[in-house]
C-alpha cells in the first residue's frame, strides 16, 4: 500500500508539472500587457522598473521556473510566516496579480471561504439525500418510487446548472419571493437573524449544486445496492433470520457504500467547476467568480494560479479515491 501510494505520488509530480507548463505557455501566447493602462506620461525607465517589479523582465522559461518556485516554496513560506509570525519569506517576490497589484494568494484566501461554504454544504446535502434514495430505489426496483427516481435523476443531470440556477431563481425569488437572488458575502453571522438570513441566501445555490451531484450519486448508489442484493451473503443473512432492516442497513449498506465513497472523492473537482457557474449566477464572490473576472481583466498570474489549483484538486482527489478504495476494501491490493 505504501509503495503504491509513493508510486502514485511520483507519477503525480510530472503530471502536475506538465499541466503547469501547458497552462503557463498557453498564457504566454496571450496578448494583454499589464503595463497597458499605465499612462503614457510615465517615463520608459520607470515603466521598465514597474515591469521588473511584477517579475516580467526575464524570458518565458525562466519566469516559469520562477513561478514554480513562488508557488511551491515562497507562498508556503508566507503561510508559515502568517501562522507563526516568522520572517522566512521576507523580501521574496510573491505571485503578484496584474489586476490589483497585490499577492494572488491574499485574494484567493479572501475568496475561498465563500466557495468552500457553498460547495461543502451542497456536497453534504447531496450525499445525505442520494444515499437513502439509492438504497430505497434499489430495494424496490421497478416500483413507482424507483421509476420516478430514475426519471428525476435523469432530469437532474440533464439540466445544466446555468439553467437550473435561473429556473430556481425564477420560481423561488421572482414568483414566490422566498429567497434572495443574490448572495450577500458581506453578511456577518453573529445572531439568530443574520444566521437565518445566511441560511436563506445559501438555499438556492446549494440546491442547484446539490441537484446534479445528488442525481449522479443516487444512480451509483442504486446500481451498487442492486449488485449487492443478489449476493449470497444477503441470502445467508436473511436465512439466519435477521430482520430485513438489519440486512439492508447493516450488511448491504456497508458493502455497497464502498464504490460510492470513491465516487464521492472523484466528484470533488466536478462540484468545484460546477461552482464556477453557480457563483456566476448567484453573484457569490468565491474563487469561481474570481477566475472569470481575472480572465476578463487579462490577469494571467491569477488565472494561472487558479487553474493550477483546480488541477491539483483533480490529481489529489483521484489519488484519494484510489487509496480509499484500497483501504476500505480488503480484497483490493495494489502491490
Amino acid at each position: 500500500m505504501l509503495t503504491y501510494t509513493l508510486r502514485r505520488l511520483m507519477f503525480a509530480v510530472p503530471t502536475l508539472f506538465f499541466i503547469a507548463a501547458a497552462i503557463f505557455f498557453l498564457l504566454e501566447l496571450a496578448p494583454g500587457d499589464p503595463m497597458a493602462n499605465v499612462p503614457l506620461t510615465v517615463p520608459s525607465e520607470v515603466r521598465e522598473q514597474m515591469r521588473q517589479a511584477l517579475g516580467l523582465g526575464e524570458p518565458a522559461h525562466i519566469r516559469f521556473v520562477l513561478w514554480l518556485k513562488q508557488f511551491f516554496w515562497i507562498e508556503p513560506l508566507n503561510l508559515v510566516d502568517h501562522w507563526f509570525g516568522t520572517t522566512f519569506a521576507e523580501g521574496e517576490l510573491r505571485i503578484i496579480s496584474w489586476q490589483n497589484r497585490s499577492p494572488v494568494f491574499l485574494t484567493i484566501a479572501e475568496r475561498i471561504p465563500q466557495t468552500l461554504w457553498v460547495v461543502g454544504t451542497s456536497y453534504l446535502v447531496a450525499i445525505l439525500i442520494a444515499i437513502p434514495i439509492g438504497i430505497y430505489s434499489a430495494y424496490r426496483q421497478y416500483s413507482l418510487f424507483d421509476q420516478a427516481g430514475t426519471f428525476i435523476t435523469m432530469i437532474g443531470f440533464s439540466v445544466p446548472p446555468f439553467f437550473s440556477g435561473v429556473f430556481v431563481i425564477l420560481i423561488f425569488s421572482v414568483y414566490l419571493g422566498w429567497f434572495p437572488t443574490i448572495y450577500d458575502t458581506r453578511l456577518v453571522v453573529n445572531d439568530w437573524d443574520s444566521f437565518m438570513q445566511q441560511v436563506r441566501q445559501m438555499i438556492l445555490p446549494v440546491m442547484v449544486l446539490a441537484l446534479q451531484i445528488t442525481s449522479q450519486l443516487s444512480r451509483f448508489m442504486r446500481a451498487s445496492v442492486l449488485d449487492n442484493l443478489n449476493q449470497d451473503y444477503v441470502r445467508t443473512a436473511r436465512a439466519k433470520g435477521l430482520v430485513e432492516r438489519r440486512v439492508i442497513l447493516v450488511h448491504v449498506l456497508r458493502n455497497s457504500l464502498l464504490p460510492v465513497v470513491t465516487v464521492i472523492a472523484l466528484y470533488v473537482p466536478a462540484i468545484f467547476s460546477g461552482a464556477i457557474i453557480t457563483e456566476q449566477i448567484f453573484k457569490v464572490n468565491g474563487i469561481g467568480q474570481l477566475l472569470i473576472t481575472a480572465l476578463q481583466a487579462n490577469d494571467w498570474p491569477m488565472v494561472q494560479t487558479l487553474s493550477f489549483i483546480f488541477a491539483v484538486l483533480i490529481v489529489v482527489s483521484n489519488l484519494v479515491a484510489d487509496l480509499l478504495y484500497g483501504i476500505l476494501d480488503p480484497r483490493i491490493r495494489y502491490d
Binding site: T15, L16, F18, I19, A22, I23, L26, L27, L29, A30, P31, P269, S273, I276, L291, I292, L295, Q296, N298, V303, L306, S307, F310, A311, L313, I314, V315, N318
Partner: peptide, 22 residues
C-alpha cells in the same frame, strides 16, 4: 490520456476561448 484527464477542463476552455477568440 491521464494527463488530459487531470486538466482542469472548464478553466482551460475559458482560457482557450479568451486567448484565441480575436
Amino acid at each position: 490520456t491521464d494527463m488530459f484527464l487531470a486538466l482542469p477542463i472548464l478553466p482551460l476552455l475559458l482560457v482557450l476561448v479568451v486567448l484565441f477568440r480575436e
